[in-house]
């Protein structure tokens, strides 16, 4: 096997594990008691999705996201899978869209908040179809407002983390060969 491929597989596996760990760990936080809406969460795994979109590319990011959701279903059940997949995939493509103007019209904050909102819309639409009950009016507003807060939080973490990784040479050293979507100069 080519060295570049091994590197890609290893990095993807590492990021899948990290995303899975984050999504399982954040369930320990009782955010559901604070805002009682099904499927509410911090969305820390989105840090990994954003990282993948920035430094690996769309196909890799999609692979990591889907793998994380599938493996996450082992912990949370098949029902949750429907919502995490529908929300996650919609969020990925919305973030990809917003990223096209990143650095000019939008920063990582815009990307993250738009991603959180898209995730909420995707999961509520899926839940409404799944339950045959319109949940849009009751749950979406709460989810969207919470999404702004959690979106800002994950953006702040991502921004600091990615900048650090760029400045200390980690990105250049380990992710130069994996990058499919080249960004102009510094990403953050």
């Amino acid at each position: 096997m080519k060295r570049a491929n091994i590197k890609k597989i290893t990095i993807s596996a590492m990021l899948i594990a990290l995303a899975l760990a984050l999504s399982v760990a954040e369930r320990l936080l009782p955010i559901g008691a604070l805002v009682p809406v099904p499927g509410i969460k911090l969305g820390l795994a989105n840090i990994v999705t954003m990282f993948a979109l920035f430094y690996i590319g769309t196909p890799g990011a999609l692979l990591i996201l889907v793998s994380r959701c599938l493996l996450g279903a082992l912990f949370s059940g098949i029902t949750t899978l429907i919502f995490s997949l529908s929300g996650g995939i919609l969020a990925l493509f919305v973030m990809l869209l917003v990223m096209q103007w990143q650095g000019r019209a939008f920063s990582i904050f815009g990307i993250s908040i738009a991603g959180a909102a898209a995730h909420n819309v995707g999961q509520i639409l899926a839940a409404s179809l799944f339950l045959g009950e319109n949940l849009i009016y009751t749950y979406l507003p709460l989810l969207l407002i919470t999404g702004i807060v959690t979106g800002i939080l994950t953006a702040a973490i991502s921004g600091l983390l990615f900048k650090k990784l760029e400045n200390n040479g980690t990105i250049a050293r380990y992710f130069s060969g994996t990058k499919m979507r080249m960004s102009k100069g510094k990403t953050i």
Binding site: V98, F106, S107, F109, I113, A117, I145, I148
Partner: peptide
Amino acid sequence: IRIGDILIVLVVV
């Protein structure tokens, strides 16, 4: 923070 970020927040709200 860019102008678009604020726009996104406003739209979501």
